[in-house]
């Protein structure tokens, strides 16, 4: 039986009719067409589907949409404001921290939560925060550099012109 729920996604309020067995990930991708959030392993191990729910990093593939009634959800589409990229996104581009891009949405949101709670993290803290986000391309070094640079730390990295 379908249930009506209200979701606040990236500041917009949506009233949706969902089946209780639909995951938040499926609702975001299929009902709201917010396909920036990726479906990776679909079993909670890869972190590609990470979104922010009420300030916490959450695996949307493991969350039932009916449980998100009235919760504030941020997806990758909500990171840029008024056409201006989020500092983390800018830093990711500057540091070439993106290759295939499948994990990017997930780790950017994990990093956003980290920096909100800890504005000046150490490299070890960055590693712990993104440990749940598997990247098979970059080897993590550039992702870590990008996050540290966004937190205002000098990572000694210079872009070759």
């Amino acid at each position: 039986m379908k249930t009506t729920i209200t979701l606040q996604v990236n500041g917009d309020v949506y009233e949706l009719s969902v089946e209780p067995n639909q995951t938040l990930l499926d609702v975001l991708r299929e009902e709201l067409a917010l396909t920036g959030t990726k479906k990776g392993c679909d079993s909670g191990a890869c972190g590609a589907c990470t979104v922010i729910v009420d300030g916490e990093p959450v695996l949307s593939c493991m969350t039932l949409a009916v449980r998100c009634q009235s919760k504030e959800i941020t997806t990758i589409e909500g990171l840029a404001r008024n056409g201006e990229l989020h500092p983390l996104q800018k830093s990711a581009i500057e540091h070439d921290a993106v290759q295939c891009g499948f994990c990017t949405a997930g780790w950017l949101l994990s990093a956003k939560v980290l920096l909100e709670n800890n504005p000046a993290p150490t490299r070890a803290e960055v590693r712990t925060a993104i440990a749940g986000n598997i990247c098979r391309c970059t080897g993590y070094k550039r992702i870590e550099d990008a996050i540290l640079a966004a937190a205002g730390k000098n990572t000694g990295w210079r872009k070759k012109m």
């Binding site: 916490e56 990093p57 959450v58 695996l59 712990t128 749940g132």
Partner: peptide
Amino acid sequence: VGSAQIQAM
């Protein structure tokens, strides 16, 4: 236990 996401959930 698990990752930051799993600890949050």
